[in-house]
């Protein structure tokens, strides 16, 4: 617990958190990631609609605890009558970003994602707790492979940003898959990073982009030397990618999955 750093970020916050997270309902996972389960009210600083279905939220937290890429926050919405709904959202930002960035895909009729996309504005308050998760995390230490499908690229983007900021972009290789550029969050950033990008429903061929699903032949060259493979996306995507990695001889014990979104 002594190694825990509870940093305060964002100019308006000014509250210094000095007690160990454990004392406040936090804990340290096996990977060294610190977890904080206290609810707090974040200031919504920026709301960026990246496409007709994707929104980026940039939040300032009054009592922020440093995260590791791969961790998530829980967002809780509360109606006037006390009814509330909470959902998990992976962190997109690197640990050294001033703000915490989340990226939400608006689902048709989605209760929480619909509100976050349609309704939330800068200046609003958003109730959150986190960071949470101690297993699907990467500290930019050992070489890794990150594979994301759709909104499943969000934690992989946090890893890429962290790799960049810590001067180790060669430590993370990425493969990302989406239907169209509009449905793949951070499409351009992933391309600039040098990720292998696959677009499965994009009518126009784009140079340097695969116009089909990710296949074993695309993953094989990325796999070498990766101590851990992080796979994130829908259950179907995670299942198919992990089976391909196994087929290529990548050890099962070194694959970490995060499954979310529709099946």
């Amino acid at each position: 617990m002594a190694t825990t750093t509870a940093a305060t970020r964002g100019k308006s916050s000014g509250i210094k958190v000095t007690d160990a997270p454990a004392a406040r309902g936090g804990s340290v996972g096996t990977s060294g990631a610190v977890q904080n389960t206290r609810w707090q009210q974040a200031d919504v600083r920026e709301v960026i609609r990246l496409s007709p279905s994707i929104v980026v939220l940039r939040l300032s937290l009054p009592a922020r605890v440093d995260h590791l890429p791969g961790q998530h926050y829980v967002v809780r919405l509360t109606a006037d009558d006390g009814y509330s709904a909470s959902r998990s959202y992976s962190i997109a930002s690197a640990p050294d970003d001033e703000l915490v960035e989340l990226c939400v895909e608006r689902l048709a009729d989605g209760e929480v994602s619909g509100y976050l996309y349609d309704e939330l504005q800068p200046g609003d308050q958003l109730e959150v707790r986190g960071p949470i998760g101690g297993w699907f995390v990467w500290d930019a230490g050992k070489p890794a492979l990150g594979i994301g499908g759709g909104s499943g690229v969000v934690p992989i983007v946090a890893m890429a940003r962290h790799a960049d900021h810590t001067g180790a972009p060669d430590r993370l290789r990425i493969a990302a898959s989406g239907r169209t550029p509009h449905e793949l969050p951070y499409y351009q950033e992933l391309r600039d990073y040098g990720a292998t990008v696959a677009l499965t429903r994009h009518p126009n061929a784009t140079p340097g982009v695969l116009g089909r699903r990710l296949a074993a032949e695309d993953l094989a060259p990325l796999m070498d030397g990766a101590a851990t493979a992080y796979v994130c996306g829908s259950a179907g995507f995670a299942e198919s990618i992990s089976q391909q990695l196994l087929m290529l001889g990548y050890p099962q014990s070194r694959i970490r999955l995060e499954r979310f979104g529709p099946t």
Binding site: E111, D124, L126, E127
Partner: peptide, 9 residues
Amino acid sequence: FASRGFGGR
């Protein structure tokens, strides 16, 4: 705390 403009499903 209530989230501005949130009514729920």
